[in-house]
Amino acid sequence: MRVISGSAKGHKLKSLKGMATRPTADRIKESLFNIIAAYLPDAYVLDLFAGTGSLGIESLSRGAEFVVFVDKNPMAVRIISENLLHTKLNEKAKVYNCDWSEYISRFSNAERKYDIIFMDPPYSKGFIIPVLQKIWQKQLLSIEGMIIVEREKGDVIPELIEGLKIVREQHYGRTVITFIQYHK
């Protein structure tokens, strides 16, 4: 696993051993970042269920202003911190060792909205809808912002969820990347 483009291009990223995380495959990551390239410059990004931090680090490498990483696994948080130091992007990031719900309830700043929110929760565990509902309730997304959900094909998301709507989906075998914005 590596940083594909930008200031940290080519840097290899550490990952957790075993099945504790499921890093986004490089080919999926490359396709995803080609799709969102116009959204990245100066973006404020939230990486929920961050795992190795690969998506947030790629965002920083490609020009995002700041990334908040959230993961409840202390080993994942350590790996994210090491990857940020290795890529020299640590000054543009904050890492939280907590559950997604705790972060949104206690630490999210209503004054600053996120331009991009990455969600890569464990597959088939029922996280997607509650997280989307909480993001909507707390109004964490900027007006033109985007939520990007990596999910397994079997994890279905309704077309509309409390003020949010699916605007695009990309299929990569069993993996689906779903792009969600405010319903206007």
Rank of each mutant, 00 (worst) to 15 (best):
K134D: 07
R112F: 14
D120A: 15
I117L: 07
S108D: 04
F127L: 12
M119W: 03
I129H: 06
D115T: 04
Q137G: 01
F107M: 04
L132H: 08
D115H: 14
K125R: 15
N109E: 11
I128T: 02
F107N: 12
K125G: 03
P121N: 04
S101P: 01
R112D: 09
I128L: 06
S124A: 10
K113D: 09
W100R: 00
Y114E: 10
E102G: 00
I116P: 10
G126T: 05
I128H: 05
I117N: 01
K134H: 01
S108L: 04
K138C: 10
W100A: 15
D99A: 08
Q139W: 04
E111Q: 13
I116A: 13
V131C: 08
Y103A: 03
Y114D: 07
E111K: 13
I135Y: 00
D115F: 00
R112M: 13
I116W: 08
N109H: 05
I117D: 08
K113M: 02
R106A: 04
R106L: 13
K113W: 00
S124D: 12
D120C: 11
M119Q: 03
Q137F: 08
R106E: 15
Y103N: 07
P122Q: 09
I104K: 05
P122E: 07
W100K: 04
F118C: 07
V131R: 00
F107Y: 15
D115A: 02
I129K: 11
F107K: 13
I129M: 08
G126H: 01
D120E: 11
Y114W: 00
E111N: 13
F127E: 05
I128F: 04
Q137H: 13
P121I: 02
Q133D: 11
F118S: 10
W136R: 15
D115Q: 12
I129Y: 00
V131Y: 04
K134G: 00
I104S: 10
Q139M: 07
Q137R: 11
K134C: 00
N109W: 01
V131K: 00
Y123E: 09
W100F: 14
L132Q: 03
I117T: 09
E111I: 07
K138H: 14
K138L: 09
F127P: 01
V131I: 11
Y114K: 08
K134Y: 01
W136S: 14
W136A: 14
I116S: 10
R106V: 01
W136L: 02
K125S: 05
S124H: 13
D120S: 15
P130I: 06
L132V: 07
P130W: 02
K138I: 03
G126C: 02
E111H: 12
L132R: 04
I128K: 09
F118K: 07
N109P: 01
S105Q: 09
F118Y: 15
S108R: 02
G126L: 02
S101T: 10
L132K: 03
S124W: 04
I129R: 07
I135D: 01
Y114F: 14
R106K: 15
Q133P: 07
F107C: 11
S124C: 09
E111T: 12
D99C: 08
F127I: 04
F118T: 09
N109S: 13
N109D: 15
I129A: 06
S108W: 02
Y123C: 10
S124E: 14
G126W: 01
I128Y: 06
Q137T: 10
P130K: 02
A110W: 03
S124I: 01
I104N: 03
Q139C: 02
I135V: 15
W100C: 14
D99E: 14
P130N: 06
I116N: 09
S105K: 12
W100M: 03
F118E: 06
